Simulated assay, not measured.
Amino acid sequence: MTMRRLVVDMQSSAPHMRLPAWAADEITANTPDGWEVAHIATQSRSLGNGTNEPSAETLAAIPAAEAYFGYGLTPPLLAAAPGLRWAHSASAGIGESITPELRESRVVFTNGAGIYAEPMADTVLGGVLHFVRGLDLAVRLQAASIWDRHPFVDNNGGIRELSEYRVLVIGAGGIGSAVAQRLQALGCTCIGVRRRPALGIPAGFTRVVGPDALEEVLPLGDITVVAAPLTDGTRSLLDGGRMALLPAGAIVVNVARGPLVDDAALLEGLESGRLRGAVLDVFSTEPLPADSPWWQHPRVLVTPHVSGVSPRRTWQRGIALFMDNWRRWSAGERLHNVVDLDAGY
């Protein structure tokens, strides 16, 4: 009997993206009947949007594969896999994988959307409180060994209670809903923007609008969180004109992808004092160059694209999602997280 083959290509050069031994054992121990698993041992340079330069070991294993579990798909990988029918990316961002070669193939492509929502929402909450409660001021004063209450009690210091803020979440999907649920529980009113508002109002939101109403709701965004996928339609979504619509004292948070936000417009808003602060986990250029103005800006909190890091629980959710999809694929059932190649996510 010919065995159906799954290739697991998860030995990333980035340690936090490398498949844990317990997860590899779980895949092997729960292999459906009729399947064999080829675990690739060679490290590869795995990025959030796809895997570059598949290893020789991968290229040797993939021709007989029906399924692939890795970090996206590249044209060389697709060219070497004539029998590939389903691929699952452990990453949520898959923009670089959507190539003409993928569109022309018969491959069903699924991703890890949703598994990073909880830690990302925790990061958003922490970053927002950093500015709402003046912790940015506290850090600078502590570094200078200065005991000074004035920046906190000055009416212009921007210190407020969290429940006074209205929240706008651009991208009301899994991440956006997790953000809204946390902030709503703490007294905020949350409005979401999503591509298809007719799908309903996710948990945490009081209202959801479509992209055509973005300019209408931006003036309500005391806290504006960017959590949308990067597509041709969302690039520079928060540009200079839209940035100018944000209310005075707004806090901007980007945990999506750097190119969704106009860097120059955001910097101008911060420099002028019109914006209270920015929480930035992603940037147009990564790694962030040493001479970037973001590093030393007093109104900016920088994290190095790690908002989704949760060393064990993210992997638990990701493996559970993959294993359920593998079972569904084997049984001919509908898969979770099938990527819409036209929408870009």
Results as ranks from 00 to 15, higher is better:
Arg106Val: 04
Val108Trp: 01
Val108Leu: 12
Val108Ser: 08
Val108Pro: 02
Thr110Gly: 04
Asn111Ser: 10
Asn111Lys: 03
Ala113Ile: 09
Ala117Gln: 02
Ala117Arg: 03
Asp122Gln: 14
Val124Cys: 04
Gly127Tyr: 07
Gly127Leu: 09
Gly127Asn: 10
Gly127Thr: 11
Leu129Lys: 02
His130Asn: 15
Arg133Gln: 13
Gly134His: 06
Leu135Pro: 00
Asp136Thr: 10
Leu137Asp: 03
Ala138Tyr: 07
Val139Ser: 14
Arg140Val: 15
Gln142Phe: 10
Gln142Trp: 09
Gln142Ala: 15
Gln142Asn: 14
Gln142Tyr: 11
Ala143Trp: 04
Ala144Leu: 11
Ala144Ser: 13
Ala144Asp: 14
Ile146Gly: 02
Ile146Ser: 09
Arg149Lys: 13
Arg149Ser: 14
Arg149Asp: 15
Arg149Trp: 13
His150Pro: 01
His150Asp: 14
Pro151His: 03
Phe152Gln: 05
Val153Leu: 13
Asp154Trp: 11
Asn155Ile: 11
Asn156Gln: 14
Gly158Pro: 00
Ile159Trp: 04
Glu161Gly: 08
Glu161Tyr: 07
Glu161His: 12
Leu162Gln: 08
Tyr165Glu: 13
Tyr165Thr: 07
Arg166Ala: 07
Arg166Asp: 12
Arg166Glu: 13
Val167His: 00
Leu168Lys: 04
Leu168Tyr: 06
Ala172Cys: 10
Gly174Ala: 13
Ile175Phe: 06
Gly176Asp: 10
Gly176Ile: 07
Ala178Cys: 09
Gln181Arg: 15
Arg182Ser: 02
Leu183Trp: 05
Leu183Pro: 02
Leu183Asp: 02
Gln184Cys: 08
Ala185Asn: 08
Ala185Ser: 14
Leu186Val: 04
Gly187Thr: 08
Thr189Val: 12
Cys190Asp: 09
Ile191Arg: 06
Gly192Asn: 04
Val193Ala: 01
Arg195Glu: 11
Arg196Leu: 00
Arg196Asp: 10
Ala198Leu: 05
Ala198Asn: 10
Leu199Asn: 13
Ala203Tyr: 07
Ala203Lys: 11
Gly204Arg: 02
Phe205Cys: 03
Thr206His: 12
Arg207Ile: 11
Val208Trp: 01
Val208Ser: 04
Val208Gln: 02
Val208Gly: 03
Val209Asp: 03
Gly210His: 06
Pro211Tyr: 05
Pro211Arg: 07
Asp212Arg: 12
Asp212Ala: 15
Asp212Cys: 06
Leu214Trp: 05
Glu215Leu: 07
Glu216Val: 12
Leu218Ile: 11
Leu218Asp: 06
Leu218Tyr: 12
Pro219Gly: 08
Leu220Trp: 09
Leu220Thr: 13
Gly221Asp: 01
Asp222Gly: 05
Asp222Cys: 03
Asp222Tyr: 00
Asp222Pro: 01
Ile223Arg: 00
Ile223Cys: 01
Thr224His: 09
Thr224Asn: 10
Val226Asn: 01
Ala228Phe: 03
Ala228Asp: 06
Pro229Tyr: 02
Leu230Lys: 06
Leu230Trp: 10
Asp232Cys: 02
Gly233His: 12
Gly233Tyr: 02
Thr234Lys: 01
Arg235Asn: 13
Arg235Ile: 12
Arg235Gly: 08
Ser236Ala: 14
Ser236Phe: 07
Leu237Gly: 04
Leu237Thr: 01
Leu238Tyr: 02
Leu238Asn: 07
Asp239Pro: 09
Gly241Cys: 05
Gly241Phe: 05
Arg242Asn: 10
Arg242Tyr: 10
Met243Gln: 12
Ala244Asp: 15
Ala244Asn: 14
Leu245Arg: 15
Leu246Cys: 11
